[in-house]
Design a protein around this nucleic acid. Structure first.
Lengths: 190, 190
DNA sequence: GTCTATAGGGTGATAGAC
DNA sequence: GTCTATCACCCTATAGAC
């Protein structure tokens, strides 16, 4: 195996950055090659199926993995505490992560069935992990799953509306207040 | 004024459909002209500034107006009832509406400052209307605003995750359960 | 592995006739 | 208002030399 396996990863990294920043259609193979510092022909050597294969590679490495966020909330001793910690972790997500999520939404219609399945699988795993963590506080598994879904929806909705659409720059609603409200509410239905 | 003011609207309608379906970059002026049934030159007569002006027109008419949803919940007599009704209205939104929202997220980075301001203005108006409706049940205005933001985030998050990303096809979490849970929780913090 | 060169086609946009 | 004709440019992709 060649010493420069890095070149392929290098290309994917650059492509990912440009795809997320400008969109798949607005990014040309030429542009990617220029940033990488090679010619288009070299790029087609690494990705025989061209731009589409490049997109596949980017999609696979761009699907966000949030599982570790759940683990960071292990110290919580009450449901309310857990939701506050979890919510703060989610809302403190690296802006890059939010960008990735936004991009997954924009490119979803272009994905193949397998790519969609991969995305669904990762998202379900995340949801299940959150539900499992909630079972420390919520005995009914179905209710734990519903609660997990509700929390995740709220967090993602906040990300899309307030971060991706930058609503946070024009409203005075405090994100910590939203988390507190949710935590109190979910804890109160127990 | 000419009898065919319709032609301009006609073009915007077609452009909107294609932009939402395939994205701005993946839609060519030629394609729009073909569907409308005119030539590109005719199109440039109506939109002197070309494709970008077309996008402006589409953005303006595509920003969703959800204000009437709030009015439909006037019969609710408790906070819990209101949230259930509101949530069901939101989740029953025409799939076309969800598509529009998805599209706004995808094209946001391409928007000018004025276009973003227009979007923010409409979204804030919606949020304020919901908060105002909530003041029937929540006396503290700040808490009403926070509650409104939380509900809206959850609904939008559901739309993006479960509808736009089609997570609803692979999970058994019931959307009515989510609404019920939220309604109980928000009502319990009173 | 990377290059040069080029094919073949789509793109946004405009000039000028009707 | 709408057309035909045309422009200059950019795109994806490939062949073949090094």
């Amino acid at each position: 195996m060649p010493e420069r396996i890095n070149r392929r990863d290098n290309i994917v990294d650059v492509a990912a950055k440009l795809f997320v920043q400008n969109g798949y259609d607005a990014t040309s193979v030429r542009q990617i090659a220029d940033v990488v510092g090679v010619t288009e022909a070299a790029l087609y050597y690494h990705f025989k199926d061209g731009k589409r294969e490049l997109l596949e590679a980017v999609i696979e490495c761009q699907i966000p993995d949030l599982l570790n966020i759940v683990d960071e909330c292990g110290s919580a001793e009450t449901l309310q505490d857990f939701i506050v910690q979890f919510g703060q972790q989610m809302m403190a997500l690296n802006p890059k992560r939010v960008e990735k999520l936004r991009w997954m939404v924009t490119e979803f219609p272009r994905m193949t069935a397998e790519e969609r399945a991969l995305l669904h699988h990762k998202q379900l795993a995340f949801q299940n992990r959150v539900a499992a963590a909630l079972e420390r506080f919520i005995s009914d598994p179905t209710q734990a799953r519903t609660t997990a879904a509700a929390i995740i929806c709220l967090m993602y909705g906040y990300g899309f509306l307030f971060v991706s659409l930058d609503l946070q720059s024009v409203t005075d609603v405090d994100k910590n207040d939203i988390i507190q409200l949710l935590a109190q509410g979910m804890a109160a239905t127990r």
